[in-house]
Design a protein around this nucleic acid. Structure first.
Lengths: 333, 333
DNA sequence: CTGAAAGCGCTAACAG
DNA sequence: CTGTTAGCGCTTTCAG
């Protein structure tokens, strides 16, 4: 049995030959560049469609100095990264850039993911919640513009676009205080990107109200939340908890309910991210929403500004969060 | 303010000049191709590292006829696709291929996702649970090898790698029957990839036992499951349900429990996918596991076989599932 | 073992 | 308005 694939992809030259014009002209037509008559355009397009011509992006990028490619590193496990990627595609399209995706998986670390994009000649990198040390990010930024999303970075070498996570927690705590809660515990996210900021926001808000801050270790997945809830159940239960993110909050809610507790009857719970899962009627979690549209638009805009050499005032772009109140929070009994 | 980026990326020629050799030789060394002395290799590598040279994959691919690039289309929202992508990276690496990722998002349909990969000169495409009509897939397959994963396709134009979903449901139902259940309902996945197969498997297994088959509409997310559970609660409750996938099953469990029911006390529940969420101690869902390692390895292998013109006997590769029994199933009261 | 030279498919000056 | 001419950075014969 022989190779079944099509013979060879049609090239510019094929189109040119068949249309009886030069390749340059075909290039002009297909790029919608000025310099061809309407009649020629018509014919060239016709022929291109006929033989199923598709421009070769490699060759195109090789030739033009700019690739108009934005590299994106994301965690394949993070539902929130999925939302961000969706927004990035839209934002990039609006400014005429393409996205090159590179995933971080259990078997493929951030270094590898970045290396792949570098090789693809991306002009700038957008890193979603990267876990690389600041020094590594700064080093990377000497090679090309780097925009870090959803994680604060103590360095002026990279641009950062993030939600004001501390404010998010202020909103969450203030909401609980307004409901009358006086015993609010935070289930934290450990070393996850943004966890420190959220923990800090919680502490500030609670102390500002003259209340003691108490934190129990959590994490970013459901089982971390479950473990945290079991820890809480071991002692006197607080009347409310704020949790690092929605997935973790789900674990908390689940364990509390299975232990016979009511949410929000016995304990009010606030999550973070306003993920799809928080919106389920059956879960209906009060949550802090990040403005994905804004975050992704800013990230792409900033990357492009860097590439265009536009002077930018501040490297740290902070987007305000929004509290979405649902039925997992209520006044204490 | 001027452009801040680095001047220009070093090229092969830069390395060659600095090492005092020809570009061809540098190319040979960096590709680990035969034809250079150990001494030269050493020096070239040294210089390349010094000036931070990185090969330009565009140029490399343009020149060599093969791109060794496998395009992958995945749904950015599907947690299971994340697992598959992880496996695909590993499998591709083992056979010396790279992956180009293209996401399907709410604002970017499958056509767009595929078009992007085509332009990048991928040699073959791996489509995860595609929703395109069979005809479109067949048409695509005339251009390049296409491997569809996790969805049966009624066409010999494309290769398919999937789990024996009918068998998976057989396992689930048989497990329930063995526990003594006689009233088993299926919450289905509607038009989701694989849903028909799972529904069919359920029907077969139930009928084989001489029991009536009953199906209620579900879907692929938690709220679909929640809706299904509410529908079930409206009538006489079955003693067990099999559900299209874990996320949907979670919704079912949640609503049943919130209605005062016990799982598995009143109703046993079996999910599908054995996702991380199923494994939580707090949920602990009995579930049908798909063999990700096997699926991804087969998908990549098959794509490569096509590219190599290896004659392949069957286009439909079916991987057996495995039932993971946890505590959401028990004998009926 | 090494270097020179010819492109891969495309774009961008520049001439006509 | 159209064609010719150089390459982009790399691989790959083919001589030396």
């Amino acid at each position: 049995m022989t190779r079944t694939g099509p013979d060879r992809r049609p090239t510019l030259a094929d189109v040119a030959a068949r249309a009886g014009v030069s390749t340059a002209l075909v290039s002009i037509v297909l790029r919608d560049a000025p310099g061809a008559s309407a009649a020629t355009r018509e014919r060239v397009r016709q022929v291109a469609a006929e033989i199923g011509y598709r421009p070769d992006s490699r060759a195109r990028l090789l030739r033009s100095s700019r690739s108009r490619l934005l590299g994106v590193v994301f965690g394949v496990q993070h539902a929130f990264h999925g939302d961000l990627v969706s927004g990035l595609y839209a934002a990039a399209e609006r400014v005429g850039y393409e996205l090159a995706l590179s995933a971080v998986t259990p078997g493929r670390d951030e270094r590898r993911a970045v290396a792949g994009l570098l090789q693809d000649r991306c002009e700038a990198l957008v890193l979603l919640g990267p876990s690389s040390p600041t020094a590594a990010l700064a080093d990377l930024a000497t090679r090309l513009p780097v925009v870090v999303v959803a994680r604060p970075v103590r360095s002026t070498a990279v641009d950062v676009v993030r939600t004001a996570d501390d404010e998010g927690m202020h909103l969450a705590v203030e909401h609980l205080l307004a409901l009358g809660h006086r015993d609010v515990v935070h289930v934290d996210g450990g070393r996850a990107p943004g966890a420190a900021e959220r923990r800090r926001g919680y502490r500030e808000a609670v102390r500002r109200a003259g209340l003691p801050a108490r934190t129990v270790p959590g994490g970013l997945a459901e089982d971390d939340g479950a473990a945290a809830a079991r820890a809480l159940l071991a002692g006197p239960l607080p009347t409310a908890v704020t949790v690092f993110n929605d997935r973790c909050a789900l674990g908390v809610v689940d364990v509390l309910r299975r232990a016979g507790g009511s949410v929000p009857g016995d304990v009010s719970v606030v999550g973070y991210d306003d993920s799809r899962i928080a919106r389920l009627t059956s879960v209906d979690l009060t949550s802090v929403a990040q403005d994905v549209e804004q975050l992704t638009t800013l990230a792409v805009t900033r990357a492009v500004e860097r590439l265009d050499g536009v002077p930018v005032a501040r490297r740290d772009l902070v987007v305000p969060p929004r509290l979405v109140v649902r039925s997992s929070t209520a006044p204490p009994r």
